[in-house]
Design a protein around this nucleic acid. Structure first.
Lengths: 208, 208, 208, 208
DNA sequence: TATGAATGAGCTTTCATTCAT
DNA sequence: AATGAATGAAAGCTCATTCAT
C-alpha cells in the first residue's frame, strides 16, 4: 500500500491543518492583531496567497481556531447533562481538559486565555457569545455545589466561577510564561489534584 | 491672586496627567496596539502633536503608565522588608492594593492584567523585568508561609503564587468584565476577606 | 449515430464559444478590469484553469471578443467598396448592424461602446488601430455625402462622423441602461428610420 | 501686501484643490478602477498618506470630483425653472456648459462621459441618482419642445434626450480622443451652433 | 507650548497567471 | 482536456512619528 498517497479530499484537510497549526503558533506568539499573514504563511511553509485560498480572512482563520477550542469544551460539558456527574468530577474534568489541551496544543490554550478570556471586553459578538455560554455553564456547576452544601453560599456563584477559572488560567499562564511543558502524566495529575483541592478546600462552607 | 496661573512646572505636570489619564482609558478600551494616538489626544482634549511634546513615543507613554503601577506596588512591598509583617497581613495588603487601585483607577488595573500579566510572553525586556521581580517578591511570601507551616509544602511556592494572583486577577477581571464598580468600602472588605479566606483555607497544610 | 461525439475540433470550438459567451456577459456586467477570471469560468460552468487552456490571458480573451465585433463590421463595410451603395444605404446599413447586433448580442455592443468607443484614450495599440480604421471608414461616407451635396459642408466630415456614431451609441446605451430589449423587427425598423431621418435632416445643407 | 500669505483656512482648500486636480487628471487617464492613489499623490506632488488626510477614501475623492460637476450642472438647470427660457435657449445653454467645462476642465468632462454617462449600469446608488435626475431634467425640455410643436412627437421624448446628449458627448469625446483643445471662443461658438442646428433641424416635426 | 499637516512603512486582501496531477 | 491548488505582485488604507509654523 502507498501511504504517501492521500485521498484527494485529505489534501485540503491537510493543508488546512498545516495553516491552522501555523496560525495557532503565530497568534500565540504575537496576538491576533500583531500577527501578520506573512508570518503565518512562512511558518506554514506556504505562499502568502494560499492562506486566502483556504480562509477568507484573518478573522475567519482566527475563528476557525477558536471553534476547535470551543467545540471540544462544549462537547465535554454537554456530556454532563446526560450523565449524573458529581460537582467534583465536573470540575476535575474541566481542569483536566485545560491541562490535556495544554499538553497537546499549548498555543491554543494560550490564545484562549490571552485573546478571549482576558480581553472579553473587546470581543466580537460571536466570540463573546461562546465565552458567556461557557461562563454560564461553569456557574451552573457552582450553583449545584452550593445547593449540595459543598461550596460556600456567602460568595456568589459567579465569583466562585471566576476564582476557579482564574486559578486554572494562572497555572496555565505560568507554564506558558516559564516555558514549562507538561512532561509527565504524573505531573499533570499532581497539578490537577492540587488545584482542585485548593479550590474545594478554600471554597467549602466555613463551619463544615 | 490669579488662580489661573500655575507655576510653570505645575502646568507641565497637569498636562502630563491629563494625557496619562486619557491614555490609560484608551489603552484599557483598545489595548496597546489598537490604541491610536488620535484617540488619546481626543480623549485628553488636546491636539495630536502635543502628545509627542510630553512623551517621546507611544511606548514611552505606556511605560509611564506602567511605572505608576509598579511604583505603588513596590513601595508597598518594600515596607514589608523593614516591618515584621505576617504572611497573612502581606497577602491581605496585596489584595487590598489591587482592590484600592481598582476603585481609584480601574483602567490601570485592567491594563496590568490584560497587557502585562497575561501577555507576559510578549513583554519588552524592561516590562518583563518588573513583572518577574513582582512574581519573585510574591513568591517570597509564599516561601515564608510554607516555612511557618501555614501553607502546604506539597505545592511549589511558585504555584501557590500563581493560584493566589490568579484569584485576584479573576476577581478584578470579573468586575471589569461585568462593569461592576466597587461601590462601598464594606463591599471591598467583604471581597478582600472572602478572597483571602478561600486562598488560605485552600492552601493550608492538609492535616493541620 | 452518436450525437455526443463531436469531431475533436468541434469540441474545441464549442468550449471556446461557451467561454467567449460567458466572458462577453461578464465583461459587460463588470467592465474589463473588474471582470475576474473566476466569474467567467463560473458563468461558463467550467473550471478556473480551463480558461487558460483556451486563451492565453485575460487580454487575449477580450481581444477574441472584439475581433468578432470588428470582423462583422469590416466585412459589412468592405462590401460597400465593391458595390455602389448610396450614402443613405451605407448609413442605414451601419445603424441596422448596430441594432441587429444589439438584438443578437447586446453584451457585445455594450462592450464596444463602454470599453472601446468611450475609453479610446486608454486603448492598447491593436485596439486603437481597429477603432481608428472604423472611424476613418465612416468618415469616408460623410466625405462622399458632402461631395454629393446631401450633407452640410460647413461641418467637418469628422464631426459629422462623431455626431452620427454618437447618436447610434446613445440609443443603444439608452436601451442597455433601461434594459429595453429590442422586441420586434418593427420596433427596430422604426428606430433605425427615426435615427437616420434625424441625422440626415439635421445634417443636410441648410438652404437645400 | 503679501500675496504669498494665505489665510490659514485657505491652505486646506488649496491642498484639496491640488489633490482634486491631480485626481481628475489621473481618473481621466486611467479610469476610476485603474487609477492608483500613488499616481494621484505623485501627480499632486505630495506624499501618499496626505491624500487620506483630505479624503477618506478613493471613492470619496471621486465623489468630490463628481459633485463639482453635478453642482454646476444643476445650478444651471435650476435657473430655468424660475426664468422663462425657451427650449432652444435651454439646449444651447447645455451645449455651452459642456463646451465651457471642457475648455476649463477637460478631464472633468471626460470623466463624466466615460465613468458616468457610459457606465451607468454599474454606478453606485448615489451616482445613479444624480445621473437619472439629470436625464429627467433634460427630458422635460424635450417634452416642452414637443408640446410647442418644435420637436417631432413621433420620437419618444426620452429618445430625443439620448440623441441630443449623445451628440454632445460624441463631440466632446472626439475632442478628447483627438486631443483637440478648444482654442478660441469663436470655435466654441461654431461648434455649439452647429450641434444645435443639426439637432433642431433633425428633430423638427417633419412637415413643418 | 501648541497645532495639525505631512510622510511613508506596513499590513490585509485580491486576483491574474502558472503548474502539478 | 480538465481541475483547482499555489504563487506573489499590486493596491487601498492606517497610523506612528516628524516637522514647520
Amino acid at each position: 500500500m502507498n501511504f504517501n498517497n492521500h485521498h484527494p479530499s485529505d489534501s485540503r484537510k491537510d493543508k488546512e491543518t498545516v495553516i491552522l497549526d501555523a496560525a495557532c503558533r503565530v497568534f500565540r506568539e504575537k496576538g491576533f492583531h500583531q500577527a501578520r499573514i506573512t508570518d503565518i504563511a512562512q511558518t506554514a511553509g506556504i505562499s502568502y496567497g494560499l492562506v486566502y485560498h483556504y480562509f477568507k480572512s484573518k478573522a475567519d482563520l482566527f475563528d476557525a481556531i477558536l471553534k476547535e477550542w470551543w467545540t471540544g469544551l462544549f462537547e465535554l460539558m454537554e456530556k454532563w447533562d446526560s450523565e449524573a456527574a458529581s460537582v467534583e468530577e465536573q470540575l476535575a474534568a474541566l481542569v483536566t481538559y485545560f491541562l490535556d489541551q495544554y499538553q497537546k496544543k499549548p498555543d491554543l490554550v494560550h490564545i484562549f486565555i490571552t485573546e478571549i478570556s482576558r480581553s472579553a471586553a473587546n470581543l466580537t459578538p460571536t466570540r463573546l457569545h461562546w465565552f458567556k455560554a461557557f461562563l454560564s455553564r461553569t456557574e451552573k456547576i457552582m450553583v449545584v455545589g452550593q445547593s449540595r452544601e459543598i461550596l460556600r453560599k456567602d460568595i456568589k456563584s459567579r465569583y466562585l466561577t471566576y476564582i476557579f477559572l482564574g486559578a486554572i488560567e494562572s497555572f496555565v499562564s505560568a507554564m506558558v510564561l516559564e516555558n514549562q511543558p507538561l512532561r509527565s502524566r504524573a505531573q499533570k495529575q499532581r497539578i490537577a489534584i492540587g488545584l482542585l483541592q485548593v479550590f474545594m478546600n478554600g471554597a467549602k462552607p466555613i463551619n463544615s
